[in-house]
Design a protein around this nucleic acid. Sequence first.
DNA 1: CTGAAAGCGCTTACAG
DNA 2: CTGAAAGCGCTTACAG
Lengths: 351, 351
Amino acid sequence: MTTKKARLKDIASLSGVSIGTVDRVLHDRGEVAEKTRDKVLKITRELNYTPNLMAQVLKSKKPYNLVSLLPRSTEENTFWVKHPLGMLKAMAELDPFPVNLTQINFDLLSEKDFVKETKTVLKLQPDGVLLAPIFQSESIAFCSLLLKARIPFVFVDGYVQETDFLAYIGENVFQSGKVAGQLTEMITPGGKDLLIINLARNLQNVHHLNNRTKGFLSFFENNNNKFGEKISLNISDPGSENVRMELDKVFKKHSNIGSIFVSGSKSYKVADYINNMGIKSVNLIGYDLLERNIAHLKAGTIRFLIGQRPEEQTYKGVKKLFDFLSSNKIPEKMEYLPIDVVTSENVDFFI
Amino acid sequence: MTTKKARLKDIASLSGVSIGTVDRVLHDRGEVAEKTRDKVLKITRELNYTPNLMAQVLKSKKPYNLVSLLPRSTEENTFWVKHPLGMLKAMAELDPFPVNLTQINFDLLSEKDFVKETKTVLKLQPDGVLLAPIFQSESIAFCSLLLKARIPFVFVDGYVQETDFLAYIGENVFQSGKVAGQLTEMITPGGKDLLIINLARNLQNVHHLNNRTKGFLSFFENNNNKFGEKISLNISDPGSENVRMELDKVFKKHSNIGSIFVSGSKSYKVADYINNMGIKSVNLIGYDLLERNIAHLKAGTIRFLIGQRPEEQTYKGVKKLFDFLSSNKIPEKMEYLPIDVVTSENVDFFI
DNA sequence: CTGAAAGCGCTTACAG
DNA sequence: CTGAAAGCGCTTACAG
């Protein structure tokens, strides 16, 4: 273990050739006699040679160009505001290395804009791509172009099974729903009804939210069910007026609701309603550490938020792309991040 | 932003001197005329010069020698088994850089051994030290020696206010107790008694555990108290026989216990007891993702475990030492890691 | 007080 | 097919 690192020079002298030749062998640049090649490779293995990254980087002028393609954070949807921070953190750590990152954004609600921006990405001729595959079929098309151009890509937020992605970093959606189910079970008195709300404008997201809801419900399957009715509500127009109307209807019909599970990141909309109506003793469980969600968490209207570490997703995504490009490191393909259970008392350490 | 990085050469030509002189100025190696010095510094600032880490590292042969001083993980106490993993992860990431790490361990239960090993550390003449200051006064003595030798040190697990540490990475102990209190409040039916157990052999740890307990109790101060009695129990001999005896006494006296809070990492001992006695519907909340705790969590005997990310503590500790030594980066002094709320449904993503 | 040169380990033309 | 040399940006003796 204390042997010094082997250098090209060492391999060269042991093989009886020059370092230029060694380099040609190691980089498969051809023009080397079979016999020389074999000998050099043998010695390389014996010496357990790994290149000195410092020298390699110092020499090579060509930087790696990474491109990210993520939804734009908007007034109406601030979930995506954290993702750039993770990328910046990764870039800061990689500062000594020659890497560039170009951030491209698209409109979360527009397939057309997504397709347009995929073209922008391709024009940049990136060495690696970080992608949130919000739109399924459009993402498949884009990824097949990346594959053809031999550009590795990493998914965050979600993944598309049909593509040849380098890695996915993000939530296990089903299981995070199940965690929400467990928390709900713990804090809801027996006999009460449960209200399950899918609240999202983007229909493409439905798949995602459905999986969470399935996970949520799955928790109750094998537990002796101590609750009353499980009421499902889909709200596709998240305008406050519409949310109020929809919830009015439900609460008029059901007077025994004990807990509400909101499968998307807009639980604050439901919390607003609960506050406005002065409804007491209903437990609200939602997702994502948006400012407005956190305000309700601290005020007590929301009991639990489940966090999916958006920053860590993009941070790790950038790192994995770089490690793959610079050292050929093949990352673990599916990296599920921890499902954070966040309350008013520990939220400050998560932000 | 797209301006190329300035090099010594650029500063040299703009200042009308050689790069040797520029280097002398930047490293304060003296022997430079005041006037030259000023000019060089001015240009350096103007060009926004930062040295090329790659070239710096490539040139300098001298590696940084880090030393860690942590308790040994034992059969009886497996809490410390995770800490080395974080350090190894950091070292793997720092592989291209010239850093070494020597791990020194001591007996968690012996001040004498700790003092002995501090001497081992000093003999190694480290460039930086990572330390778990288990024994207060002995740690103060050690740290003052480090200070005298101008060796920076970072605390994990706990910190000693009286010393001049570079950084602390770990839990906010009081607040983590408060989180436990909140969870307890959420899942315990009104009117029930709460049992609070300090279970640890090492008396030095009492301060630590007391703080958690204080945090736990503080949660109930400002909430209208819906619970019955709060029973405190200190068990200093964690032998199973003794634990059984102590708990027998308590349960004989109190028949209305709704939840048990164990302030240390040995909640599995209490869980063992609960299982053996066939006690039902008591909520158990403990700390740390030890194997035996996790087994009880999955089996349902423990409801919540609170995690303090031991791996991340040492990982970040090593990184901060390296960043400080190599780039003079002053880290945030108090880095409180998130307080993880762990249940049977999300535990797998934490291990 | 200052400059010129060697060298860290690698890659990249170029000469043969 | 192979070797010798230049150079990436920095640091470190050495000469003057």
